[in-house]
């Protein structure tokens, strides 16, 4: 399935400020000058084809408990082992391998700061790697959407 400029316009519109009203797609269809049912069908097709990662609410981690971005410097030969260790914590929700001495980057979210620190200590102890704890000090771009 090919994605058109009209699809991109639609995806961009539905990324942000999805109307909190009983008939939200009617509002968007009227803004974009499209037929509502045709537009919803197209969006469902885009979702089936894998162009939409998710549709729903994006929570504010900071208000949900404690969270941080952490990094480990893992020796290349231990990447698989250590990433399995890190991923085994249900509090870890993103984990990326990146090109740097600190090569494993992951986000940890826990109900409390105490629990968060407990998890970080355990990861550090069991991995025997140096760990950076980089909690957000301030956000300058609270909306995670970007124009595609």
């Amino acid at each position: 399935m090919d994605i058109s400029a009209q699809d991109i316009e639609l995806l961009n519109r539905v990324q942000k400020n999805f109307p909190i009203v009983s008939d939200p797609f009617a509002e968007i269809a009227s803004e974009l000058g499209r037929d509502k049912s045709e537009m919803i069908n197209r969006l469902a097709l885009l979702e089936q084809a894998g162009f939409i990662a998710r549709f729903g609410g994006v929570n504010n981690h900071k208000k949900m408990g404690a969270s941080t971005l952490a990094a480990l410097n893992v020796p290349t030969e231990k990447i698989d082992e250590i990433s399995t260790l890190v991923n085994s914590f249900r509090e870890v929700n993103h984990n990326y391998l990146r090109e740097n001495a600190f090569n494993l980057w992951f986000v940890v979210t826990a109900a409390t700061e105490g629990k968060l620190q407990e998890i970080l200590s355990e990861i550090q102890r069991r991995s025997e790697c140096e760990l950076l704890d980089l909690p957000m000090v301030k956000s300058y771009h609270i909306d995670l959407a970007f124009q595609i």
């Binding site: 939409i52 549709f55 609410g57 909306d143």
Partner: peptide, 17 residues
């Protein structure tokens, strides 16, 4: 601010990013 936003998250990778 409890909910940051309501909407879709595109699969950036599938779109080509």
């Amino acid at each position: 601010g409890l909910i940051r936003r309501i909407g879709l998250v595109p699969n950036h990778y599938a779109i080509g990013y």
